[in-house]
Design a protein around this nucleic acid. Sequence first.
RNA 1: GUCCCCGUAGCUCAAUGGAUAGAGCGUUGGCCUCCGGAGCCAAAGGCUAGAGGUUCGAGUCCUCUCGGGGACGCCA
Length: 691
Amino acid sequence: MKPIIDILDERLTAAMNQATGRQDCAALLRSATDPKFGDYQANGVMALAKQVKVNPRDLAQKVVDCLKWEEICEPPEIAGPGFINLRLKTDFIVDTLLKINAKHECLGIDTTNNPKKIVVDFSSPNIAKEMHVGHLRSTIIGDAICRMLEFEGHTVKRQNHIGDWGRQFGRVILGLWHMCMAKQHIKEDQLDSTVYYYQSELRELEESAQDKSTLEAICKRIRDRHKEDWEKDSEGKDNPSSGEKFFHPFLDDLQNRNPRELWPDFLAAYQYVNRLEDSLTDMGMDIPIRMRDPQKDTWIIKSIPYESLSRHITTMLQNIDHPDNEQEKKAWQRITDISLDHCREVYDLLNVKITDEHFDYEVVRGESYYRKMLPAVVNDLKKMGLAVESDGAMCVFPAGFKNKEGNPLPLIIQKSDGAHLYATTDLAAVRFRVDQLEAKRIVYVTGAPQALHFEMFFAVARQAGWANDDVDLVHVTFGSVLGEDGRPLKTRSGENIKLRDLLEEAVQKARSVVEEKNPDLDDQTKQDIARAVGIGAVKYADYSTNRNSDYIFSFDRMLSLEGNTAPYMQYAYARVKSIEQKAEDKHVNIEAELADMKQLTLDDPAELDLARYLIRYGEAIESASQDCRPNYLTQYLYDLAQKFSAFYNACPVLDAGPDKRPTRLLLCDLTARTIRHGLTDLLGIEVVEQM
RNA sequence: GUCCCCGUAGCUCAAUGGAUAGAGCGUUGGCCUCCGGAGCCAAAGGCUAGAGGUUCGAGUCCUCUCGGGGACGCCA
């Protein structure tokens, strides 16, 4: 079925064209601002009257005279300075409800007649970092956008543009190497109760931060051992540090281990590398490295500053696909696996699908995916004359952007050391998405601070002709999650709050509420409810604010069960389900009563109020999807739940007479279906039958 | 310094240029012989930070001021 608002808008527009003899009228049909004005109001007549210089109320009357409304609306009313107010006929509402009942799988909503291929780039966490609150919004807003677009009938390609390339690359490999070596330093019989050196030495480094000489002694000790381990690892081989003895077997063994157990260790080792490198600055310590002698094609050993070791690995591995770098490539792949597994755990909790196993196409295409396309991006921009060298770096200066000095602002695509940046990767990705994925719209869900980057990068993509006018480029921004103090949400010690911890706390808090309200449920049921309510509360709280606003994160409010929250919605749903369960006791066969319904009796104001709102679900989806604003959808669902509650209070269902009961059962059924569809199918929030 | 976002009830948040700016929490007062009271109904609470402007009409668009946050060349 076509949305009612669209039908009326078309008719109003036609009537306005007819009344004025023009072709360019806009009815501006909107939801009525107040129920006393009816269901819809047309705002366009007033502007039109101004243009054609006639009295707006007179024009409104003319428009109404030309308008076909009879089978849909009560007689239109002209109000105020020239509004045309439309109220749906009860018969029309009845008709529509019956049609929805006949097609209740899609709730009477048609798919779009203009389906597009749309890429949605979201979540995109950084490898080697635990997912934290900062990833919450992109992940769930992006997911909701995809779900809405998919429901509308678009072909959506989800892309998880993970940060798996670039500067931290060398450090993560070093981290894994330390994990390997630390294990070697542990005797077999100590394995249970032991502390790995990267754990104990991290503490030492932190504690001695202010004491230069102690710090140097620690670093020297670490360096000496590092060197020794490195040499031992290639014992008996002419290929230095080939990793034959320890590292390769370690990496192979990792494949057989549970990534979930490895993750904390890896994080600790990575943190160790970061700390160590920061500590080493200006200490003048060296470490040997191996490199290919390009002349003789043999390995040579060279000394470099210890603190630049990871940077060396990073630059060397610009060429990761070379056979010489197999060890590093393998290490990097293991880390990606381990890290993605951690993400997967969070995604599962959030009920978000943004990894490969859920789809028949590659979802996780991180920065590394585009690595081979980067030189071409730079070269092509150079050839076009768009990229020029500036202070040793390759830059594009898109028109209209200025820096602090008022000079043209560069988008840097290649650093002076030859390395590429995220702008380069973004450009390669946009090319890939337009050419290979045939995207007609690309949606980037990232925080507002990156707005300038996207503006510039879009401008360059357009200038280069990689995204022409037939491709929409959209940056969906969002605000920050704040703590109760109004500052960005952090732990007391100032660290990012781990997303998994946050979600687990939400489930735990929800559990204690369930425990209190409904102590007789069995343990598994309680846990299922706690999970649906806890996770749902976090997601719903996010969705229900304007995404551009910052919002203050509060477990108490989001779990408070009153107001516009997930628990309230879930409760409304559970109450309907409860009626269904009770039906059997009262010998009411719901299916039989709903099947093949021909007529409804909408007598009670609460029934009518609920009914007229139920048929407008599609409008809510349309507006939420259009602007990528899930809060339009939550607002609709909340209003719907409130109207249902009012109806529930005023109108007995199971005890109603046979003349009223089928209607009321239908209202219950469609309310439940709509809430479940909105919550679960579009927002990924579970509903529960009881709570 | 330039640019971007924000400033709405005591608090947390809404408001697709439209009519008298809405919810929830909190406050006050009603409503269970009845399907889940985790509910419903109602009241009080506002110069939409301030000043100009555009418009038939401005919380929304433009200009300025004040206050908060963020971005602005080799991180992402």
